[in-house]
Design a protein around this nucleic acid. Structure first.
Lengths: 182, 182
DNA sequence: CCGAATTAGTTTAAGGTTAAAGGAAATCGC
DNA sequence: GCGATTTCCTTTAACCTTAAACTAATTCGG
């Protein structure tokens, strides 16, 4: 599966020299997209650390819990965060340690565990979420509301393009999109 | 510095309830941008692993070296990759181990070390770069060349916005933009 | 020259991340 | 019922990443 899934390179002998196929536009777009995401993410990580002594993954996890007041299973959490199970195990461990979330083995299914914010966790998260929201707005302040919407829309096309290109690709790619739920 | 650098909250007593300031558009844009970047990055990481048994950071490092045939100092490498010095130390170590790059202590300054691709490293990278380029093009294939250019352009505005909002922020934020050099 | 400050890299401690292997509970098919 | 399979989660090994502390070499000011 891995050797042929890229493209059909049936034209191995093609006169249209394969080496000259230079996807410059695509590459430049991808690199700029990555730069933007990295710049913003780095700044947010830095501020979370400086202002709240926490990390982005922890913040993201708590954001998921805030939207599920009745708790959520670890597996579901893992799916929504788009990270591995093992990753969630560790994050949850640390947040429980900090007293910001609590975990509770399910009654009906003793393999499963529910996690939810503690009261303190909810209070702390509320503060962080406000700040986070302000930070993002500050970083994007150079774009008009119109520009922002236009960009958002175009990124929707991009997302679709990527999904189409990768679907059926790996196993269980039916990952729910975290952003749309917000 | 950290408490006032966000915004001037001079209107602490403002009747326009601060809590109701909901930067929804900005947040949605940021989340979608992040989703797009993560989807593409995850797919590229996966393919690098499956097809070349390597990682994105290693690929990125080699990409920098390919553009500097005469070698490059570790510090400069760190700056161009926008990662910490210590990070580069480890990556270089592993790539040297694999025989893909070589390091050489500078004659004139015995603190400094030059790294460059080995012959084998250059050959391996050439293959990877071709594949990588094809992958990116494949993932973005759903967008017309026009859409791609438009998106690239808008992301330029975004990048500028972020740079303006963060400049002077931390120390030495004058990081050269990796993408523009390409 | 020589002490102070700067600069290039490394080390360390802590954490985030994954794939793969594994343990334990629940479910499925007879 | 009960063995096989699936599902939920944890563990492990390896890697990536950073900030902060550190080492060693260079440069700067007298």
């Amino acid at each position: 599966m891995s050797s042929t899934r890229l493209r059909e390179h049936v034209d191995a002998e093609s006169k249209l020299d394969e080496d000259t196929v230079n996807h410059r536009v695509e590459l430049r777009l991808w690199l700029r997209l990555l730069t933007c995401a990295n710049l913003i993410e780095a700044e947010i990580r830095k501020r979370l650390r400086e202002n709240f002594d926490t990390t982005l993954p922890r913040f993201d996890l708590m954001a998921q819990l805030e939207r599920a007041p009745d708790g959520i299973l670890l597996g579901e959490l893992s799916r929504r965060m788009m990270v591995s199970n093992g990753n969630v195990t560790g994050l949850v461990e640390r947040l429980v340690q900090e007293g910001l979330i609590e975990r509770q083995v399910s009654e009906r299914d003793r393999r499963a565990a529910l996690v939810r914010l503690t009261e303190r966790g909810a209070a702390v998260f509320a503060k962080m979420a406000r700040a986070h929201s302000d930070w993002v707005a500050e970083l994007l302040a150079g774009l008009s509301a119109q520009d922002q919407k236009a960009l958002w829309s175009r990124l929707g096309d991009l997302k679709l393009s990527v999904r189409v290109a990768t679907e059926g690709d790996g196993d269980a790619m039916a990952q729910p999109d975290p952003e749309e739920d917000r």
